[in-house]
Amino acid sequence: MAEFLSLHEAIARHVHDGDTVALEGFTHLIPFAAGHEIIRQKRQNLTLIRMTPDLLYDQMIGMGCASKLIFSWGGNPGVGSLHRLRDAVEKHYPAKLEILEHSHAAMACAWEAGAAGLPLAVLRGYIGSDLPRVNQDIRHIDCPFTGERLAAIPANRPDVTVIHAQKADRAGNVLIEGIIGVQKEAVLAARRSVVTVEEVVDSLEAHPNACVLPAWAISAIAVAPGGAAPSYTHGYYGRRNDFYKQWDTIARDRDTFRQWMEDHVMNVEEGVSA
């Protein structure tokens, strides 16, 4: 049952060194405030999962939180490379980062399989691609009915998933609107979950088919207004595209990056970071 905690307490209690952690969000609803709290609490040796690692994972990798990354597209959308991710992969700085890469279709299926309690996801995928040659987790099975050879990958089952959402009601039920990505699947696939929300309301006023996570499917909720910025929260604030462009310059240089993190993440109070 969802417990309302401070962001500091939610991360301290649910995200541990060495955990497999997913901070999901498909451009929208990226849980920056929670990720920054993980960085401030100096978590180490994390296996990070996310379909589209962008600035937040660049920050976590650059600050040395991660030893492994499972992903399907790692870039700064519409801008270019993630320089901290590239530095870790190409130059092993600040530490060697093991990568395991998939396609979006496969990762989306792996999330769905995790939520469904299955050991694997099956898809008609990776045909003719070199990805199966470099990722031992991409294998094949023969369909028992048609004999067709299909791609199979393990289900995603993280220790903890962290997402951001619009709102929770006082009982701890959560409403997610707009580009919902894999938010619901990622929470249901995880052993534990932390959800940050813009606000707590008396009633979600959700229509019957809305994307709602019941309180009893969530471990902890923390109120974090603006918690997805510089990404966005549909209905609350827009994406700071200008910052995504500026990040290219900030992250390109190791020292500039470090200084920016000190000024904007490490030395600020929870919930007021950029």
Binding site: F71, S72, W73, S81, E90, E101, H102, G125, S129, L131
Partner: peptide, 13 residues
């Protein structure tokens, strides 16, 4: 890698 690019994303399928 000499240059690491973003990866496959949706493109393989």
């Amino acid at each position: 890698p000499k240059v690491r690019l973003p990866g496959g994303g949706g493109a393989p399928e």
